[in-house]
Design a protein around this nucleic acid. Structure first.
Lengths: 355, 355
DNA sequence: GTCTATTCGGCAAACGTTTGCGCCGTCTTG
DNA sequence: CAAGACGGCGCAAACGTTTGCCGAATAGAC
């Protein structure tokens, strides 16, 4: 039983044209007429039918946001900051998750196109050139966050992992750590590869190499599994550098289960700084990526693309930063020198933990 | 530059009618014609314009879901299970968050109505009778989760806090605990009140009363603040029973900061069983509310309402259950008898921690 | 060969808005 | 008092689909 504009018009004794103009403030209407119309709208609880409006306008008030997984605590904060930025311009957000599945990513794109979003921000690995092209081909401004090669038709906001990770590595190095192990995220995700490479590069700057590199799936269980392997080996690392906070928390839990103390026996570093990192025990040292800024920035980039004639892609870089907390400390003495000269450990990812 | 049905029709050499029928499988089309049309659709990358379709059909393929806050880790799992249930019936989900704000709740309702959702599930305290009426008045099937008085025009799925909480209390009582303190969520939220009442009732069954009841805001900081007050008092509780897991984790952190051991010196219980509860240290004992079932159930209730002529509201109850983990243990001896006869402590909420 | 049944597919009207165009009074100006 | 300007508003065409109705063509029955 929808209430239509004509109902409002009849009740206010005007034409639907006038109602429309009152609603959209798109041409002056005499004050008393205006009041009558507004009253009728109130009384009837009228809302404009979005479909009809969209159909004739050919343009929605929607910005799209495609993420990997709403359950991954990395994303909600991003979603919120993006939504906040949009809300300020009276824009709404159409959210879609890929759940790490290519076909769901395709589905997300379809949703965006069908709902005629004005622009789209994407942060997920399941987003190949084809999917990008489906959007850019329709002239939909697109910004790819975190991963993504720069292209002429879309913008990118890249995460400068190196800044924060180098800071973390220097910090640990100063604390005497020389035996670093790496628990990476799934290496079929661009961002996880970027993270891994940054760690290796930062280590290299200090003349170090990771003892071992093991691949997980970004879930806490995989962090625990990897920690178990690392910590039961003959030569234990003094630092486990994890691909995200959830793996870090899993690693801390496993260390405790193995009777080791964190950070006295082993330091653990996470990545992302999701809220829980502050409340684990010990609180997790991590590399923060500023998600509130990220959402805001993504929005601004899209706005700029919308308003410029030449829809050329921009490229931005967002710095990360070390957040030092309780899960890292001075290296246990007696180990710090022995690890100095590591010879035969591979820096290539080993398998066994990908999902 | 949208691709329209007429583009497809021209390319396939048929009328738009035929294209439509191919698309919707709404009347038989000769196989070769069908193939030509499908090919054209493929080649052009055509997607039906949702607005136009909606406008004529008068009905969308959308189910609405209104939650409080996407950053609250309670909700993502609910969202996902609801989405999964919908996806199986080829329905999409329109998600809106109130962010604990009445005007945003109103906004969410407007979105639902404007997008002509078929049905709506709501789980947030910011949802009064007026908002409900706006939906039910438009004959939109509505199910209210968790809180909500039953009504004739909408369904409810209530959370039976008592089942799980009583289990937890009995468990703790058997372990010798007699000094319970309560860290509740904000008491202007129906669900937080229900939770509190259930705890008090479960205690009463065993002839106990809470030593103190302090009100927080469901955030970890408030859990920490409350723990500080409780644990620095002369008479310490042996159990802090929290309104949700985040407060529980905050409480554990504070206990550690105060030099107390969990669970040896004080047991902490959370509520909800969000994923992080498993990975705190010690892992948090909690009262689980089955969110996957909840989303599924909400969907089924809505479907039933849609398909029955008389849109009368149903009422369901969902049981909770204790999940015993490492944050609870035997009460410290020497305290367990002294708390036996508590006299003068108030069981009414004290103020000072609401946001 | 005619008639009927059946298969296939097009025509055009709706869906609820927005908006260009234009009409009707009233006010201002000389 | 004539004429132009202007404020206030309505008419009707469009937006891209879906779908009831109908026509054309072919096949089958007699």
């Amino acid at each position: 039983m929808p209430v239509l504009m004509r109902d409002v018009a009849r009740k206010a004794g005007v034409s639907i044209t006038t109602v429309s103009h009152v609603l959209n403030e798109t041409r002056p209407v005499a004050e008393d007429t205006r009041q009558r119309v507004l009253k009728a709208i109130q009384d009837l609880g009228y809302y404009a039918n979005t479909s009809a409006r969209l159909l004739v306008r050919g343009q929605s008030d929607l910005f799209g946001l495609i993420i990997s997984d709403i359950e991954n605590p990395f994303f909600p904060e991003l979603v919120k900051s993006f939504e906040r930025a949009c809300a300020e311009q009276r824009l709404e957000v159409l959210l879609s998750a890929t759940n790490y599945d290519r076909s769901q990513a395709q589905n997300a794109v379809r949703r965006m196109l069908q709902n005629q979003v004005r622009a789209v921000a994407v942060m997920t690995s399941q987003f190949d050139a084809d999917l990008q092209a489906q959007l850019t081909g329709r002239k939909v401004p697109l910004v790819v966050l975190g991963a993504g090669a720069p292209g002429r038709n879309h913008s990118t906001i890249q995460i400068d992992w190196l800044s924060g990770i180098a800071e973390a590595i220097r910090h640990l190095h100063r604390l005497g750590h020389r035996r670093f192990a790496l628990a990476t995220g799934p290496q079929d995700q661009v961002s996880a590869v970027a993270h891994r490479d940054a760690v290796i590069k930062a280590l290299a700057k200090l003349g170090q190499r990771p003892m071992r590199v093991l691949e997980g799936d970004h879930g806490p269980e995989s962090g625990a599994d990897i920690a178990k392997v690392l910590l039961s080996a003959r030569e234990r690392p003094t630092v486990i550098f994890c691909g995200n906070d959830r793996m870090g928390i899993g690693a801390i839990g496993m260390a405790r289960d193995l009777g080791l103390r964190v950070p006295e026996d082993v330091s653990v570093v996470g990545s992302d700084d999701v809220w829980i990192a502050r409340y684990s025990s010990p609180p997790l040292t991590t590399v923060r990526i500023p998600r509130d800024t990220l959402g805001q920035l993504a929005f601004e980039v899209l706005m700029k693309m919308l308003h410029s004639k030449r829809r050329v892609g921009q490229r931005q870089v967002l710095k990360t930063a070390l957040v030092a907390r309780g899960s890292t400390a001075q290296a246990a003495s007696g180990q710090e020198s022995s690890g100095r000269d590591i010879r035969s450990f591979s820096a290539e990812p080993e398998s066994g933990f990908a999902d």
